[in-house]
């Protein structure tokens, strides 16, 4: 029982219907252990945020078709009824977003919002809930927390709001925290503070976390493992060191090569040519093949299976060589 991973996602498919169909997620598998941080790295349209939202069933039900299995703790997430779903959100898993202004309710004070969540999930009194809210604001290191408890979101600066949202998300001690680009909108000096805070809280509370980002640097700072997504599939997973030092998939290699850093001054950047596919059809072969420098005829024939290139290091590429084989 305790050996079972906390989160298990199997063969997840998400399709949006509408004027145009979009096959946003096309067979995602991953597992997350207690206390582990998984970084999902990908560009816009890779399906990374959609995968995360599917975990909390935050996608618009009418336009979305979800297939596969999602288990968090003992809950089969895709089978939860409305009541159970409301209990699940916030208590078992909770989420922080890129834009705290959209996640916090502008007409309630920060303290009211946190206390309300605590009261609902823990069925405790108002005074106890407020005490918890204050404790949370202290935890996320908001200066003068007593005063901030009665502040409205618009009265806070961007970094403060992000801290308040983290306090709200963690108020009910969720087992897994889902973070959707939580530092993308922040200034550099504030981003690093929030990253360090999240890392510290995750360790203190023993939470598992999934961290979606497009920024390799951010993923390296917070993750234990990284999953690289492209066109709705995980193309490579491995430890942070595996991904950064020994990337196996050509897309991961391309992404690393095209990520600008100072040492590249004066050199031409090895950009990946072209653009990601539109995904109006479910991809029937390797989606990266049209942009891949190592493409071979069979790449266009079928979807490559994940190959274990080293222990706990998987790559979905026909050319990846299995470890020991």
């Amino acid at each position: 029982m305790t050996n079972r991973p906390l989160v298990e996602v199997r063969d997840l498919h998400v399709r949006f219907r509408g004027e145009r169909n979009v096959h946003a997620v096309n067979g995602v598998d991953f597992a997350l252990n207690r206390g582990e941080v998984l970084g999902i790295l990908g560009e816009s349209g890779s399906g990374k945020s959609v995968t995360l939202k599917a975990l909390l069933r935050l996608l618009p039900e009418r336009r979305t078709e979800i297939k596969g299995a999602i288990r968090v703790g003992d809950e089969d997430v895709l089978a939860l009824g409305p009541e159970a779903l409301a209990d699940f959100r916030g208590k078992t898993a909770s989420m922080i977003f890129q834009e705290p202004m959209l996640a916090l309710d502008p007409v309630y004070t920060v303290g009211q919002q946190i206390a309300e969540a605590v009261e609902r999930h823990e069925k405790c009194g108002a005074a106890a809930a407020r005490r918890r809210a204050l404790e949370m604001l202290e935890r996320v290191r908001i200066p003068s927390p007593e005063r901030r408890l009665d502040s409205y979101p618009h009265e806070m600066s961007g970094g403060m709001r992000q801290r308040a949202m983290i306090a709200l998300a963690l108020a009910c001690r969720p087992q897994v925290l889902l973070a959707d680009e939580p530092t993308t909108a922040l200034d550099a000096t504030v981003q690093i503070q929030i990253l360090l805070l999240l890392r510290e809280l995750q360790r203190e509370l023993g939470m598992a976390a999934i961290f979606v980002t497009h920024d390799i640097g951010v993923a390296v700072e917070v993750s234990d493992r990284i999953a690289v997504m492209y066109a709705g599939r995980i193309v490579e997973t491995g430890s942070v060191a595996d991904i950064v030092r020994r990337p196996a998939h050509p897309y991961t290699r391309g992404l690393l090569a095209s990520t600008v850093h100072g040492a590249m001054r004066g050199r031409r950047l090895d950009a990946i040519p072209g653009a990601p596919p539109a995904l109006s059809e479910a991809p029937a072969s390797c989606s990266f093949a049209p942009r891949c420098g190592e493409v071979q005829p069979e790449c266009h024939a079928r979807v490559p299976d994940a190959v274990t290139v080293a222990p706990a290091h998987l790559s979905r590429c026909l050319r990846s060589v299995a470890a020991g084989g």
Partner: peptide, 16 residues
């Protein structure tokens, strides 16, 4: 404050 690209040398303390 720039995120480190090296998993062995993660930022330990926020500069400001």
């Amino acid at each position: 404050a720039m995120p480190s690209m090296d998993p062995d040398r993660r930022t330990q303390e926020a500069p400001i």
